[in-house]
């Protein structure tokens, strides 16, 4: 995964609370293989009318939005469904960071697992960033090392879990990390099976024998 250090890029303001993952990508698009590019599905029903005509006023259709790598939004971003496709839609559109006062838990881990930074800011700071960005894509700087965000004159700090910060800074992948612990896992699994012998399910044929 591509590491993130500093993003010096365009930012867009999505001034809404509770932008859930059903809005980020409507369920009907999730049958598609990733190779088609999920960016086209991002916020589909929000930025198109019922006939599929794009709303030219919507921020993602403004000129320069295609270069945007940072989105700023309001509280509870990415709540709801665990669909990682919501992150694919953002990432494939080109986003590498979302800034909001709070995130759905699963969304935030999905983001990190795809190299996208979920940056948590104070509610007032989110409002200041939204105001500074305005209705058009505008320059924004996100510094993961320093945990600072700047839009024009507005500069705020953000929080991110230290584990996630390290992962993102290095572009690390969990599976590689875990496989280094293979021996510990094997030992644990053996002990666990001894302590909790009933915990592993038996095939159903066993049930017939087991019933007395």
């Amino acid at each position: 995964m591509q590491p993130i250090t500093v993003l010096d890029t365009q930012g867009v303001a999505l001034a809404a609370a509770n932008v859930d993952t059903d809005q980020l990508i409507p369920a009907r698009f999730m049958k598609e293989p990733r190779s088609v590019g999920y960016g086209q599905f991002l916020l589909y029903d929000v930025r198109h009318d019922a006939k599929g005509t794009p709303d030219p006023a919507f921020i993602l259709h403004r000129s320069g939005a295609n270069d945007a790598e940072v989105m700023v939004s309001r509280r509870n971003f990415g709540a709801g469904s665990s669909r990682e496709a919501a992150v694919y839609a953002l990432v494939d559109f080109g986003f590498r960071c979302v800034i909001a006062p709070s995130f759905g838990d699963i969304f935030a881990s999905n983001a990190v697992n795809n190299g996208m930074l979920p940056a948590v800011v104070e509610e007032e700071d989110a409002e200041r960033l939204l105001a500074a960005l305005g209705d058009e894509p505008a320059p924004i700087r996100v510094d993961l090392e320093a945990q600072r965000i700047r839009v024009a004159e507005v500069e705020v700090s953000f929080s991110v879990s230290p584990v996630w910060r390290t992962k993102l800074l290095n572009g690390w992948d969990d599976i590689d990390l875990t496989r280094q612990h293979a021996d510990t896992i094997t030992r644990f699994a053996a002990d666990y099976a001894q302590t909790f012998p009933w915990a592993a399910p038996r095939p159903q044929a066993f049930d017939l024998i087991g019933k007395g």
Binding site: S82, R83, E84, A85, V87, I106, F107, S109, N110, N113, N114, D174, I175, T178, R179, I185
Partner: peptide, 11 residues
């Protein structure tokens, strides 16, 4: 999420 599903499948 799907990345974690892959992680659990693998480990």
């Amino acid at each position: 999420g799907a990345s974690e599903v892959a992680h659990v499948l693998a480990t």
